[in-house]
Structures are given as C-alpha cells and as structure tokens.
Amino acid sequence: MRLSPPVHPMLARSVNELPRARAADRSVFEQKVDGYRVVVFARPGAGFVQSRRGADLSGAFPEIARAAAGLGVEVVLDAELVVFNQQRLDFPALQQRARRRGASAELAARDQPAHLVMFDVLELSGTVLLDRPLHERRTVLENLFVARELGAPWALCPQTADREVARGWLDPAWGAVGVEGVMIKNVMQRYLPGERGWLKLRARMSAEGVIGGVTGEVGAPHAVLLGRFDTGGGLRLIARSTPLSSSAVVELGAVLRPAGAEHPWSERRFAAAWGSREPLDFQVVVPELVAEFAADTAVDRGRYRHPVRYLRLRDDMSVQDLSGP
C-alpha cells in the first residue's frame, strides 16, 4: 500500500442552489449523509479508520476495523461513517460511540453497529488513483462492491446525473432520515486531498421558535437564542442564529425586553459552539416573541446542530402556538 495515514480528504464548498445545467456539464450528484467523514485503510488482516482530521478511530469502531481487515484486498476508501437507529441516521449515537474504547466500544459495536457509506476509492492493490477522473474511480468502487459481494457494514453512496433526482434528495422527508443535502461533483475531476474542489448544497427548511435570549446587547442583539416550551412548561433551547442583519438588529432591538431571575435560562449555561466547553455569553429576554428561521436538516433530539438564519418575527403566532420540541 503506497498511501498511509493521514490522508487529508477532499472537501467541498457550500452553495445556495443546484448549479444550472449547461450543454457541456459533466456533473453528478450524491447524497450527503449525516455522519463522520473517514478514510479507511484496508489490507488483509489489518484495518485502520482515520477521521477527517487524521485521528485514529479504529478503537472506537472495532467492527469497522475488522471489516476492513477482512475485505481481502488492499484498498483506501473515502466514506461517511454512520449509525442507523430507529429508521434514521443517529448522529448523537455516533458521537457517543466515538468516545468509547475497549470493552465499552465492543459493547456499542454490538448494540449500535456503524456502517460505511462509501463514495470514493483512493488506492487499490498498490495503484494510487488520485489522478484518475472521478468516473473511473467510481467504476473501480462499483466493481469492488460486485467482486467482493459487499453488504453491511459496507454501503455504496447513491449517485445520479439526473438533476431532478438530486432535487428530490433536498426534500425534508429525506432530511428526516438523515440525508443532509447533495454533493455536486465533476466526473472528470481528479481527487485533490485537503482542497475544496467539490460543491455541497444543504437541504433547508423553515421553523419557528421563541426568542429566549440574545448575544450582544438586548437593544442591539448580535444573534438570538431560540427555544420552545415543553409539556412541563420548561423552555428548551433549540437553536442559535447566525449574526443578524442590520435591519434585524434594529427590528429586534426595538421590541425585545430584558428578563430577570424568573427567566428559565437565568441560571443556565450554554456552550459557545456545538461540542465546545467554552461558555456562551448571552442575555435573557422575556420569552414572548416568536421568530421564523431557516435551518438545515441536522436536528439532534429537537436541537439544531448548526446555526440557523433569522428570517422574521411572527406577530401572527403566540408562544402557545408552538408545540414542544
């Protein structure tokens, strides 16, 4: 095997819509699934699972390392590591599994087995494929599936040249089962480690939440914290917005009211970012205004993983109109 870890995976830059079709267009589309990006090194008797940033995940996912060791061929694969649970991809379960090692990891592998959604091959039987066009690498990958009669935990990422099929993958129904959006790739493109040579379009939807807090000043908020009241009357954080536009700062600064110690979040601490331990500096406001926001489909137990975009106040809705998360 000529490639060795770490191999920096090829990345993508975000776009806001599917690129328009052109006469000479050579684009194909793949599902973007909700998981961990990994590079898998397989050789007879040995398997290694590398994270996007180069960490060794083999101990956390021993069933994947064993599957790679049992593949019977030397190959380097680019894939998304996922856990499937209750009819959808379960990102929180994947996160929990990534922290386990030893006997705990083996137990998790039995109870919540991981799978690999594969979309590229970087080396096969000593031949490095980085300079080969995507359509050739895809053929190699498909042939590997056929020749090895691969099944779970191996899965082949769906790919299509049909824009309407790709547009269908952006439907919220796909988001509900863990398909975050669409990857857009050129069939003639070589593999560029570490470079943003692909495009990605996240599926988006709109929703509503109660404004329960802000970063910055109440009279000039930088971003808003959104929540929903649960059946017990508690206000649960569901999302944090991206920085507000100048017009939104003026609009919200004129109507938000600071809250006191009676606010459900007055003693709460929230992380500054997903997975971070740094506390977020925020001000509580009276939870009386409903806001509409745009978000992607990455929602974990009622909370949006990525920052959402504030759209407008919903003066036609009250906090009682919102169901719990």
Rank of each mutant, 00 (worst) to 15 (best):
P264I: 12
M1S: 13
P287E: 04
D316W: 07
V299N: 00
A24R: 09
V319S: 00
R309E: 02
D230Q: 03
R228C: 13
R163T: 05
A248K: 11
L225H: 12
L280I: 13
R277S: 08
P287M: 12
A69E: 15
V140F: 13
P6F: 09
L235M: 10
V28T: 15
M317T: 09
L81C: 03
A239E: 10
G72K: 02
A12L: 06
V117C: 03
A114P: 13
V15D: 00
A93C: 07
A259C: 12
E17R: 02
R314K: 08
H135K: 03
P5R: 02
K185I: 15
Q112R: 03
E208A: 08
E106D: 05
A60L: 11
R26G: 04
A55K: 04
R269Y: 09
H8L: 15
G234W: 09
A69C: 01
G178L: 15
A12D: 01
V140C: 01
G168D: 01
A298P: 01
W274K: 06
D321F: 00
A155G: 03
R163Q: 11
V117R: 03
G70I: 04
E149I: 02
S51I: 07
V255L: 13
P258F: 11
L77I: 04
A161T: 15
A108P: 00
G45P: 11
A108D: 07
E63F: 08
K200S: 04
N16W: 06
N186C: 07
V140T: 12
G54F: 12
A248L: 14
Q320I: 07
E195S: 06
Q95V: 14
A68N: 02
A147F: 02
A152M: 04
P62T: 08
A166W: 03
A273L: 12
T139A: 11
G194Y: 00
E278G: 08
F61D: 02
K32Q: 06
S245R: 14
A259Y: 06
R100W: 04
E251Q: 14
G45N: 03
Q31I: 10
K185H: 08
F229A: 06
P19I: 13
D315S: 10
V75F: 09
S58C: 12
I64W: 00
F282I: 07
L18P: 06
S51A: 09
L156H: 00
D296E: 14
E136F: 08
P258T: 04
A109E: 04
V82T: 13
A291L: 15
S245N: 15
P279E: 08
A261V: 15
L130Y: 07
R37Q: 10
P264Y: 08
S58E: 09
R101P: 07
S266Q: 05
F119H: 01
D120E: 05
D315I: 00
G212S: 11
G175M: 11
P264H: 07
F91D: 03
T215R: 13
G219P: 08
C157H: 10
L237Q: 12
G216R: 13
